[in-house]
Amino acid sequence: MSIETIRIEGIATPVSRIGLGTWAIGGWMWGGADDARSVETIRQAVESGINLIDTAPVYGFGHSEEVVGKALEGIRERAVIATKVALEWSDSGIHRNATARRIRQEIEDSLRRLRTDRIDLYQVHWPDPLVPHEETARELERLREEGKILAIGVSNYSPEQMDGFRRFAPLAAVQPPYNLFERAIEADVLPYAREHGLVVLAYGALCRGLLSGRMHADTAFEGDDLRKVDPKFQAPRFARYLAAVEALRQLARERHGKSVLALAIRWILDQGPTIALWGARHPGQLAGIDEAFGWKLDAEDLRRIDVLLAEHVKDPVGPEFMAPPARQG
Score class of each variant (00 low, 15 high):
2 S>D: 14
4 E>W: 04
6 I>T: 07
9 E>D: 15
10 G>F: 08
10 G>A: 10
12 A>C: 01
13 T>A: 15
13 T>L: 15
17 R>C: 06
18 I>Q: 07
21 G>D: 04
22 T>E: 11
26 G>S: 04
26 G>C: 03
26 G>N: 08
29 M>W: 12
37 R>C: 00
37 R>D: 10
43 R>Q: 02
43 R>W: 01
44 Q>Y: 01
44 Q>N: 04
46 V>N: 06
47 E>V: 04
55 T>P: 07
61 F>H: 15
62 G>M: 10
63 H>P: 09
65 E>T: 06
70 K>H: 11
71 A>I: 01
71 A>W: 02
76 R>C: 08
78 R>N: 15
83 T>K: 02
84 K>M: 11
87 L>C: 12
87 L>W: 05
90 S>D: 13
92 S>R: 13
99 T>Y: 12
100 A>L: 13
101 R>W: 09
104 R>V: 09
106 E>A: 15
108 E>G: 05
109 D>V: 15
112 R>F: 09
117 D>Q: 03
117 D>F: 01
119 I>H: 11
121 L>V: 09
124 V>C: 08
126 W>L: 06
127 P>L: 07
128 D>V: 09
128 D>T: 06
130 L>M: 13
132 P>N: 15
136 T>V: 09
137 A>N: 11
138 R>W: 03
138 R>G: 05
145 E>M: 07
145 E>V: 07
145 E>K: 15
146 E>L: 14
148 K>I: 05
150 L>A: 12
152 I>W: 08
152 I>D: 06
153 G>E: 02
156 N>R: 14
159 P>Y: 07
161 Q>M: 12
163 D>N: 03
168 F>G: 03
170 P>Q: 10
174 V>W: 03
176 P>H: 05
177 P>L: 10
179 N>H: 08
181 F>L: 08
181 F>H: 00
184 A>K: 12
184 A>E: 13
189 V>F: 02
192 Y>D: 08
193 A>H: 06
196 H>Q: 03
197 G>T: 11
202 A>H: 10
204 G>R: 04
208 R>N: 14
209 G>S: 10
211 L>M: 04
214 R>G: 07
215 M>Q: 07
217 A>C: 05
219 T>R: 02
220 A>M: 14
223 G>D: 13
224 D>E: 02
225 D>P: 02
226 L>R: 04
230 D>F: 09
230 D>R: 03
234 Q>W: 01
238 F>M: 00
243 A>L: 02
250 Q>L: 12
255 R>F: 00
256 H>E: 11
258 K>M: 03
259 S>I: 05
260 V>F: 08
261 L>G: 08
266 R>S: 00
268 I>K: 10
274 T>G: 06
276 A>M: 01
277 L>M: 07
277 L>V: 11
278 W>D: 01
278 W>C: 01
282 H>D: 11
288 G>R: 12
291 E>W: 11
294 G>R: 06
296 K>W: 10
304 R>N: 03
305 I>W: 08
306 D>M: 05
309 L>F: 03
309 L>P: 00
311 E>H: 14
312 H>M: 02
312 H>L: 02
313 V>I: 15
315 D>L: 06
316 P>D: 12
317 V>C: 11
320 E>L: 09
320 E>R: 11
322 M>G: 09
328 Q>P: 08
329 G>K: 09
